[in-house]
Simulated assay, not measured.
Amino acid sequence: MHQPTRRAAALPLLALLVSLTACSSGTGARISGDATTAPPTRRVPGPERTASAVPDRVTIASVGVDSALLPLGLNQDGTVEVPPAEQGMTAGWYTGAAVPGEPGAAVIIGHNDTRFGEAVFHDLHKISKGADIAVRDSRGRTVHFTVTATETVSKKAFPTDKVYGATNARVLRLITCDGAFDPQGHPVDNLIVYAAER
Rank of each mutant, 00 (worst) to 15 (best):
V143Y: 10
T150D: 05
V135N: 03
I133R: 04
R139S: 15
T152V: 13
T176K: 03
K162T: 12
T150P: 01
V153C: 04
V143A: 15
K129T: 14
K129D: 13
L172E: 05
V135A: 12
R136I: 09
I133C: 07
G130Q: 05
A131T: 09
R173E: 00
T176E: 10
A149T: 08
I127N: 05
P159F: 04
I133Y: 08
I175A: 10
T152S: 13
V171F: 00
T142N: 08
D178L: 08
G165W: 01
T160I: 12
F145H: 08
K155S: 14
S138E: 02
I133T: 09
A149V: 06
G165R: 03
L174A: 09
G179N: 09
K162F: 01
T150S: 09
K129C: 08
V171K: 07
C177R: 10
V163A: 09
A157R: 14
V147F: 00
G165C: 05
F158W: 12
R141L: 14
A149F: 00
V153S: 04
E151L: 11
T148V: 10
S138H: 02
T160M: 06
A131P: 03
G179W: 07
L174V: 12
T150F: 00
V153Q: 04
R139E: 15
K156Y: 08
K162H: 08
H144K: 15
T146D: 07
V153E: 01
D178Y: 13
T150R: 13
F158P: 01
P159G: 03
